[in-house]
Design a protein around this nucleic acid. Structure first.
Lengths: 235, 235
DNA sequence: GTAAATTATGAGTGACAATCATTCAAGCCG
DNA sequence: CGGCTTGAATGATTGTCACTCATAATTTAC
């Protein structure tokens, strides 16, 4: 331990160097991928010797973990803001979907780095934890929807969450491959599905259970037919 | 070139050795991950010298590519069989979903290797191609459903495909993390969504367009109310 | 101003993929 | 059997790169 308060200029210097390393590393990792990135290149780009990096980050993997953790915590802040819409939970979900899709497409390089982490540091709990926190933003909105009677309680939250993030993630990946970036359609249909399948009718029951819509439509048609065949007794 | 027909025993030997390398490599890759696997270990396990492997596979990445390609082509055969169910396209989709989910969970180690490939051999088209062929099994079933009037034409196939595979893949991943393996619920709900959102009513229109179900329900309720307030004119 | 403590440096080390000169064995013909 | 040809097998060697550590530079303390 040094004195109780090391000079602020010193602390600032340390923070600046750490930030410089992170900036340089992110650029090099994105450019060459995790294993293609050489620590020597990162050091040169950050304007310091190779050994210096090891004072700030114990290993190459630790360096990457820090980058990825920063990324997800920033993203979580954005997602919370996007989901804080007042009004129906469905609108908040649409807003979250738009934010998420945008991030997946614009910052896909960093998200690929996240996947590299899974491969190079298997069994790590930290990075999973970051994602879990991010993904919980959905849960909050969905639960709010249940509380307000906008979503049915019958479906476990995790199924809805898997459908939500799974569809968006897969779609973003295939969009990148196709070069298309028309995120509107998937989001429309996804929100639609949430409305139709997880939404709640006035009675507090799910709008439609499995196969229910068909029976519903049949009753509707039959009832209408009968109604229309009757004489009008009004006025 | 040797003579027109090199002795079969020789050719067989070569094939056996290639198979031995692939078997050993798959085991070592799964055990230690791509970068954790040492060529020396693979060679020892296959019962040959390190240099010998390089006669059969130009690089470590090529070796992995071969393993992954074999895996996907086997899986495609299974998926085609699962989707060849007669009867409704919806049943075929359910069967495909069950097969896919089973594979994702049981053979997740190999699927993780596929993801390693993306990271260690970026920009490779081969492995993408394998997956594209596999994924096309869905397209065939879905198009058959459209032809037979079981699915509406309004939704592009790719959106339905993204929703299908995205949900299953994401769900399989989170199930692994949770340790649960109850695939039934997700599949039920997914098939349900396909029926409710992409299914076709008798009129050839989608069962429910965006927001449509709400207007439908309102008309239904209003009509029923009116019907019930009328005197019964029968008998 | 100088000793003590902290931080920076880059040549050096070990691990590992990939190479290649050399050894080995199978098939073929007399 | 025994030389001859051709392709396969070998493992010591090379090159690369993450990481270390003895030393140098710089800052702090008194």
């Amino acid at each position: 331990m040094t004195g109780l308060s090391p000079s602020p200029t010193r602390r600032q210097k340390v923070e600046q160097r750490e930030a410089a390393i992170l900036r340089a590393a992110q650029a090099i990792f994105i450019e060459h991928g995790y294993d293609g990135a050489r620590m020597a290149d990162i050091a040169r780009r950050a304007g310091m010797a190779e050994g210096t990096i090891y004072i700030y980050f114990k290993t190459k993997i630790d360096l990457m973990k820090a980058i990825v953790a920063n990324f997800w915590s920033d993203l979580t802040i954005g997602a919370r803001a996007a989901g804080r819409l007042e009004g129906s939970a469905l609108l908040a979900l649409r807003s979250l979907a738009e934010f998420h899709m945008q991030a997946l497409i614009e910052q896909f390089e960093v998200i690929e780095l996240t996947q590299s982490l899974r491969i190079f540091a298997p069994g790590e709990t930290d990075s999973r934890q970051d994602m879990r926190i991010y993904v919980a933003v959905f849960d909050d909105i969905y639960r709010r929807g249940i509380d307000r009677g906008q979503f049915c309680e019958a479906t476990p939250v995790w199924v809805a969450r898997d459908l939500f993030y799974g569809t968006l993630e897969y779609s973003a990946r295939t969009m990148r491959l196709r070069g298309s970036e028309d995120t509107g359609l998937v989001i429309d249909i996804l929100v639609d599905v949430f409305e139709a399948r997880f939404g709640v009718s006035e009675t507090g029951q799910p709008a439609f259970e499995a196969g229910e819509y068909k029976r519903f439509a049949e009753r509707f048609e039959a009832a209408l037919e009968r109604l229309e065949s009757l004489p009008d007794t009004r006025s």
